[in-house]
Design a protein around this nucleic acid. Structure first.
Length: 538
RNA sequence: GGCCCAUUGGUGAAAUGGUUAACACAUCGCCCUCUCAAGGCGACAUUCAAGGGUUCAAAUCCCUUAUGGGUCACCA
């Protein structure tokens, strides 16, 4: 068989050779340790938690090593693609601060970065394999394949196009011509040299050495629509884009023997592989991949709509990705995840369950360390989109709002009660007369006379905190409150309450709630006039 | 069904054959305190899916079983 002739017969219009492409996309001039990584999603919708998780790692490797991070769009399955898919993905990734060096919009020296625009390249590489006798055209119809499968099932044979089941493997050039003349559709299949009974092994950067049976399936390289399935496209693309570290979903592990056979058939140097476990979720006791359809917390929009800081989400992803990250972050207060060096061998070898509680805790911690003005700005941005009423107030009382947000902030032990920017309103709304809406249960010891006495005769805005508190204590006995906690605990019936009760009354009158941050600060910010107003309405 | 991978507390996990199985989140209790939050202290796995084996010594190595997950397309 003259393979060269067969190749020309199949692809007369392909005149370039793989050497041409090798020259077009030369090896990158990398310094020691620099990594070229990529994220290769299908354009099927907005980015979700799973994507963010899967792309965080390769992106960080490129950053850590001053390397290159590529976004490649795998749209070879046209059925699933959506309009604007590429833009949406890019927007979301940029929104989260991912640094992308080469992508379909920005371009780069190794493009195009959309697989559907690389058809000629794939055909050239397929043609090459045909010309060296490692691939062949297959004219089997869907019915043929279904029939083959039925026979295999009946005989309890392995399913697949291999060995003597590979009917088109030995077609003569005349037979091929005949099909072509009839206009029959064909796919290109790999002529596999593997033996299922032999084993191959490879080293995964995360899982270590894995042993698998060799591939002996004559897999499809080019579909009848002229477009390659994932496997072939990935080999060609990752080689031509000179990717050094392939990170991808763990589900590809079982096809590694096939992928490796392709790399070897071309004689290309293989990159290193890391197969990542997906982000999962427990659902009725079963563990499954987190899904943007079923899990509201999987959608990026969930975090946007609730005003979670993106930084906190990345911190959470980082803690999942590298088990030593959390400890490092604790020991290096004030540093960014960007300063952390991520490692493959610190990746978990089993799936991680997504834990919203943990994310919330990280978010609280993160927000607690922001400056009041930063919290103000984030909240303003959030409110502008989701809470116009609050937005207007924040704008109207800018400096006041910042001062309110500064209560018990920028101190050694800041409050951690704000989990997202949506919650800010809930935490501080009573500080705005427009939103002040007391909800409390009346208690016997809420003594209005005492409060009026307090505001008229005792409270002084210029007092420092200690003086302020001492003054409250001083007036306690007069109104039946006990200032000695031990004494009060021993004889609770003799008093209306203790100092805490007296403070509670003041707090409830002024804030409309039983719990609040530091009262002294709150009173100071409200000012005597407004305190008095609120007490009189009490 | 074949093949591959995984299995440490409610959750994320550390430990890489050698003292009482780190740490963080969650939960609970106590302390501090003007409330709450924070903070401090403490509780929560007598045991690492189960059973066997190797070893002076095993969560760590080996075998079997169980459970969970992945994969067997002209989907990625």
């Amino acid at each position: 068989m003259n393979y060269k002739e067969l190749a020309d017969l199949l692809y007369p219009h392909i005149t370039k050779t793989i050497e041409d492409y090798e020259k077009m996309y030369p090896e990158r001039d990398l310094k020691e340790g620099q990594m070229v990584t990529r994220f290769a999603p299908s354009p099927t919708g907005r980015v979700h938690m799973g994507n963010l998780y899967a792309s965080f790692f390769p992106q960080m490797f490129a950053r850590n090593t001053d390397g290159i991070f590529i976004l490649r769009i795998e749209d070879t399955d046209q059925k699933r693609a959506i309009e604007n898919g590429v833009e949406l993905i890019l927007d979301d990734l940029h929104d989260y601060g991912y640094k992308i060096d080469e992508d379909p919009i920005k371009g780069g020296a190794y493009g195009p970065y959309i697989q559907s625009e690389r058809k000629e390249i794939y055909e050239t590489f397929a043609k090459h394999l045909v010309s060296i006798g490692r691939a062949y055209p297959c004219f089997c119809s869907e019915d043929d394949l279904t029939h083959m499968r039925e026979v295999q099932e009946a005989r309890k044979d392995r399913i697949g196009y291999y060995g003597h089941y590979a009917k088109c493997r030995n077609l003569t050039i005349e037979e091929v011509k005949e099909h072509l003349d009839k206009g029959d559709k064909f796919v290109i299949r790999l002529k596999s040299m593997g033996d299922f009974n032999k084993r191959m092994s490879f080293t995964d950067l995360i899982k270590g050495t894995i042993e698998l049976p060799e591939n002996d399936l004559d897999q499809v390289l080019i579909k009848s629509d002229g477009i390659p399935p994932y496997a072939f496209a990935h080999v060609v693309d990752d080689h031509l884009m000179r990717v050094t570290h392939v990170t991808r979903d763990d589900s590809y592990i079982s096809s590694v023997p096939y992928h490796f056979e392709l790399w070897d058939a071309f004689g290309f140097k293989k990159p290193l592989f890391a197969h990542l476990l997906p982000l999962c979720k427990k659902d009725n006791g079963n563990i499954r991949k987190i899904s943007k359809r079923k899990d509201p917390e999987a959608a990026i929009s969930f975090y946007h709509e609730n005003g979670y800081p993106k930084e906190a989400i990345k911190l959470y992803l980082a803690t999942l990705l590298n088990s030593n990250f959390e400890e490092w972050y604790l020991q290096n207060p004030g540093s960014s995840y960007l300063d952390f060096t991520f490692r493959f061998d610190k990746m978990s070898t089993s799936w991680a369950l997504f834990d919203l509680d943990k994310l919330i805790s990280i978010s609280k911690e993160y927000i607690s360390k922001l400056k009041a003005e930063e919290v103000y700005n984030y909240t303003l941005k959030y409110a502008e989109e989701f809470d116009k009423e609050f937005y207007d107030l924040l704008t109207k009382y800018k400096d006041y709002s910042i001062n309110v947000l500064n209560i018990e902030r920028e101190v050694e032990r800041p409050r951690k009660d704000i989990e997202n920017f949506k919650a800010v309103r809930r935490e501080i709304e009573y500080m705005y007369d427009e939103l002040f809406n007391p909800t409390y249960e009346k208690k016997d010891f809420y003594d209005k006379n005492m409060l009026i006495d307090y505001i008229d005769n005792v409270y002084d805005e210029n007092d420092d905190k200690q003086t302020w508190f001492d003054k409250i204590k001083e007036m306690c006995p007069k109104y039946g409150f006990c200032t000695d906690n031990k004494e009060y605990k021993a004889n609770p019936d003799k008093y209306k309450g203790n100092t805490a009760s007296a403070c509670e009354a003041l707090r409830v009158a002024v804030t409309g709630r039983v719990m609040s941050p530091d009262l002294y600060e709150i009173l100071k910010l409200l000012g005597k006039t407004r305190i008095k107003e609120r007490i009189e309405k009490f």
